[in-house]
């Protein structure tokens, strides 16, 4: 197997696993959202590296250039990035509201508060 081989997928997978861990492990909601962003970026890397053609150039048609990289993943990821920031914003807004009603952004503390509330009622 010559050099680049499958390394691009493995980089994406390393980032993906880190993102997955960051979504699952921390109790802190803001850190979970950062983890979600890491995960998202890993998917972007996966798509974009799949679209690369050896010897190709950016898909802007110009004279004297024959080989272009695949424009389709670029389009998909371009929109995905902007939608990603939109979902991040909604998630952060929810975190802010949770902090206002519970006074904490740690998941286990929120759960304890909710259970205490259910017991009281």
């Amino acid at each position: 197997m010559e050099w680049p081989g499958l390394y691009n997928y493995w980089i994406a997978i390393f980032l993906m696993v880190t993102g997955l861990y960051l979504v699952m492990a921390p109790q802190n909601l803001v850190k979970k959202i950062v983890g979600l962003n890491v995960f998202q970026a890993s998917v972007f890397v996966l798509y974009i590296t799949m679209g690369k053609v050896t010897g190709g150039t950016a898909p802007i048609i110009a004279e004297g250039i024959e080989v272009y990289s695949n424009p389709l993943p670029h389009v998909l990821i371009l929109t995905a990035i902007v939608v990603g920031v939109a979902t991040t914003a909604v998630g952060l807004a929810l975190v802010v509201r949770i902090n206002e009603s519970f006074g904490t952004i740690e998941e286990d503390e929120i759960r304890e508060l909710e259970e205490a509330q259910e017991d009281a009622s």
Partner: peptide
């Protein structure tokens, strides 16, 4: 890897706006 449009968006959105939003939150 030749995705100039995507890089532009990621730099503006990912490194710019999302960082500012997270700091705001």
């Amino acid at each position: 890897v030749d995705a100039v449009d995507v890089a532009f968006t990621e730099a503006a959105v990912g490194a710019g706006i999302s960082t500012v939003l997270m700091l705001g939150a």
